[in-house]
Design a protein around this nucleic acid. Sequence first.
RNA 1: GGAGAGGUGGCCGAGUCCGGUUGAAGGCGACGGUCUCGAAAACCGUUAUGGGUCACUGGCCCAUCGAGAGUUCAAAUCUCUCCCUCUCCGCCA
Length: 420
Amino acid sequence: MLPLELIRKDPDRVRRAAQLKGETAPVDEILRLDETWRGYLHSAETIKAEQNRLSKEFAQNRDAALKEKLREMADRSKADLAEAEAVKRRLDDLLLRVPNLFHESVPVGEGERDNVVLREWGSKVDLGFTPRTHFDLGEALGIMDFERAARVAGSRFAFLIGEGARLERAVAQFMLDVHTREHGYTEVWAPLLVNSASMVGTAQLPKFADDAFKVDGQDLWLIPTSEVPLTNLHREEIIDVERLPLKYTAYTPCFRSEAGAAGKDTRGFIRLHQFSKVEMVKLTTAETSMDEFEKLTADAEDILQRLGLHYQVMVMCTGDMGFAQYKKYDLMAWSPGLGRYLEVSSCSVFNDFQAMRANMRYRPARGAPPRFVHTINGSGLALTRTIDAILETYQRADGTVTVPEVLQPYMGGLEVIGAR
RNA sequence: GGAGAGGUGGCCGAGUCCGGUUGAAGGCGACGGUCUCGAAAACCGUUAUGGGUCACUGGCCCAUCGAGAGUUCAAAUCUCUCCCUCUCCGCCA
């Protein structure tokens, strides 16, 4: 969230940023509630101070008249405090609904078409035959099954079978090994169900409750991304500055309701209720966050390069970057069969927006007051779509698929999927 | 799931029965100082967070002893609900 102080001092800036993001910020109501809240709080505190003083006096000398006066003061301070708290609750809820500001380098735009290609690696492969989609390939090879998944779970689910399942495991292993051994991330095995406070911490709540699955009757949500447990790992903590930047990675399934995505990507292994992802999360100081954001993006790109997948790095424009992000890059891998780029990674920097919600701070120096950490995260990468790009890029005319060299050791030396 | 014991400041740990200058003893750690060529030891001092306010490199006020609610003039201390941790039993991957 944004500091109340900022909204008070520069409401126009907050309003303008929200508007350019295609969001709304309840700035006026916040300012009004803020004033009301302060009024009640000030009144309550003034009474309470006097009440505390007289109460000590009463402890010495139990005077009946004084007791009566104290009783009356207690009623008044309690009433004011109750008002203050009620207003504060509404205020806090509204504050959680104010979108983040954005970095000056973010292009202003309304939607997808205003995103900007920042750089590109490799080029579209020329296979020399008409490429097939990953789902055609996958079903023909017997390594993907959507029909049975629909029967077992429903639409937007999938089975990976045999070499398909093994490929998924291989890709995950490969990514984790690169991030932990070469990029300096610490591997984490995390809860896949988290409480509401954590969902608020990373800003899935309160605004985007419909996008996630909730456990019936319990304060538990299926994680839409391991960003949630990883970023919240240090919630409510004051972290030693020497430990920063903290770099975590995790391989987990992710669950999304895909509400509002009806009709989009209904075919294939692209937009599922459950998909898996290797996630990277960094907690940094304010000074280093933009730099660490670029490095994290490079870490994700490294995976694509080693897999030999052509991709573009796009800067998301204001209208397409999201509620909580300060700046966001999407990594788009080329899928020859689908004939389009697939988003295989989304890397974002949040500044202190998430850290304020999760109350996650660090002390810049001994004795100095604590400051909120800056949070960064990115997929490194989304497994499902990376597999799509691999299958479509490395497919051969006979419908089999070459296993990229870096993955072969993870596939027990297998060189071709579907070979007989 | 059953029975029991607990959750106090950066950490350890008193205080809770019998409510009242206890935001909280003591110890450890850390930081500053004295001493020293330097260091150690010893000694002295400082050492939570959030908010408000002022005559603002400091003072004053409010809140916070797992969370919430209640009793009371007054709650770390009493009551209730919830969460978490530990021990034993049961069950289970």
